[in-house]
């Protein structure tokens, strides 16, 4: 894949990918049980600052990404805002009933989704697939067959993209794209899906046979082309994440912006 729109010289690229993966995933468990709206407001603010200062994406892309994520995160909370349970009614018409409690809960939900998306993007935009899977094998002891399988699969993406273009061109040549109706649509979908899947399966099978022919994964200990180790950057990374999380809890205590400290009460 072409990655020229990513700047790979930033600090977060130099961190051990396994450590980054474990830390980022454990954040889910930290914020899953936060029911304090203030904590979530501060957390999303701090992670937004963190994301914008460490992301590998260029500014314009990054801004668009964040804006889109914020909007859809609030969309995802719309059901809770419009139809949630609560007693202090703010607005009521037909089925729509917005209460103070449901509004607070909805905003917390939206911000939580926003924070997790940001953290996910933080990981995705600063991690390259090859070092990531090498690190999984070396630090987290993921079986070599699975990790190399993932690497081989990633290599197939450009081929799949090319194949997709071929199918589309073939359909245009045969005039299939101009046919209308549900039946034609179904036929087109079938052509795309089945061709892509069948070809992917065949390609994966050929690759596996080729790998085994070269004595891949025959159980002895093996060496790695890339050695992924540890550095001082890893410590800095852990400190940054711990500080960000701690700040979100501390600020919520010292500077509560809203009176909703537990959105489950109603």
């Amino acid at each position: 894949m072409e990655t020229t729109w990513i700047r790979t010289n930033k600090l977060f690229f130099k961190i051990n990918p396994s450590l980054k993966f474990v830390m980022i995933s454990s954040l889910f468990l930290v914020y899953l049980f936060v029911h304090n709206l203030n904590t979530m407001i501060w957390a999303s603010l701090f992670f937004l600052i963190l994301y914008s200062s460490v992301t590998g994406l260029s500014g314009k892309w990054s801004f668009g990404f964040v804006l889109f994520t914020l909007v859809v995160s609030l969309f995802s909370a719309s059901a809770m805002i419009l139809f949630g349970k609560g007693s202090h009614v703010l607005y009521h018409q037909y089925l729509i009933m917005i209460t103070q409690e449901s509004l607070a809960r909805g905003i917390l939900l939206g911000l939580r989704t926003f924070t997790f998306s940001l953290v996910g993007m933080l990981f995705a935009t600063t991690t390259l697939p090859v070092p990531f899977f090498y690190s999984l094998m070396q630090q987290l002891k993921v079986p070599v067959r699975f990790a190399y399988g993932c690497l081989a699969a990633f290599r197939m993406i450009p081929m799949m993209a090319e194949e997709l273009t071929h199918i589309r061109q073939a359909m245009i040549v045969r005039g299939m794209t101009k046919q209308k109706g549900i039946k034609a649509y179904y036929a087109r979908l079938n052509h795309y899906l089945l061709t892509m899947l069948a070809q992917s399966i065949r390609r994966a099978q050929r690759t596996a046979i080729a790998m085994e022919a070269k004595r891949f994964s025959m159980k002895e200990s093996r060496t790695f082309y890339y050695q992924i180790g540890w550095s001082r950057n890893d410590l800095v990374f852990v400190l940054i994440i711990v500080c960000t999380v701690a700040m979100s809890f501390l600020c919520a205590n010292s500077f509560p912006l809203t009176p909703f400290t537990n959105v489950l009460d109603h």
Partner: peptide
């Protein structure tokens, strides 16, 4: 599971991931 199964599964998973 042999290597073929694993690779086929992962490739399919990648397609669905996309």
């Amino acid at each position: 599971l042999n290597l073929t199964d694993i690779l086929v599964t992962i490739v399919i998973a990648l397609v669905f991931g996309l």
